[in-house]
């Protein structure tokens, strides 16, 4: 069994049914999960910030870092596995985007990430069928490619499915 581990700002995909696609400790970052039932491919991006306009060089080097560059990059990556280039037929799930307690507007990066991602998904005619966003705890995500099952975990809590 292989593991595709994605760090902050990474994106990747797998169609190997024995693989897990995994990302650790999302904090205010958001994980965008694309499941393609037709090709049995799982794709994920670990998005850190909503908008690439603050650092174009970083966006060119790591498109997965920003919501607006991550989704086109992930869709392009998934075409290598025979997926539809505009994500037709894909199942979308979102998780992460936590905020610290009593946060003010400036520090609501988690919320801004989630909103930016939803806006870009809508522009692609896509929408999430399941989400576990916000609140104030960090999430680790594991997706089993074979079963297409999304498992979330957080220290001190029992695991749960999305």
């Amino acid at each position: 069994m292989g593991q595709v581990i994605l760090g902050v700002g990474d994106y990747g995909a797998s169609n190997n049914p024995t693989d897990d696609v995994k990302t650790f400790a999302l904090g205010s970052c958001v994980s965008v999960i694309l499941l393609d039932p037709k090709t049995k491919t799982v794709g994920m991006a670990h998005v850190a910030l909503p908008d690439s306009s603050i650092n174009k060089a970083k966006a060119a080097e790591k498109p997965g870092y920003f919501a607006d560059t991550a989704i086109p990059a992930l869709l392009a990556e998934m075409t290598k596995y025979g997926c539809h280039k505009k994500g037709k037929g894909m199942v979308v799930k979102l998780c992460g985007g936590a905020n610290v307690m009593d946060t003010n507007d400036t520090f609501q990066i988690g919320k801004r990430n989630a909103l930016a991602i939803k806006k870009i998904l809508w522009a692609h005619g896509m929408g999430a069928i399941a989400e576990d966003l916000g609140e104030n705890f960090s999430r680790t995500v594991t997706i089993s490619v074979g079963a297409g099952q999304v498992t979330l975990s957080s220290p001190g809590r029992p695991n749960w499915q999305l």
Partner: peptide, 14 residues
């Protein structure tokens, strides 16, 4: 903590 580097169960819970 927001960047995903807390110290476990207490992360973001302040």
């Amino acid at each position: 903590m927001m960047g995903g580097f807390g110290t476990g169960s207490d992360s973001m819970r302040y």
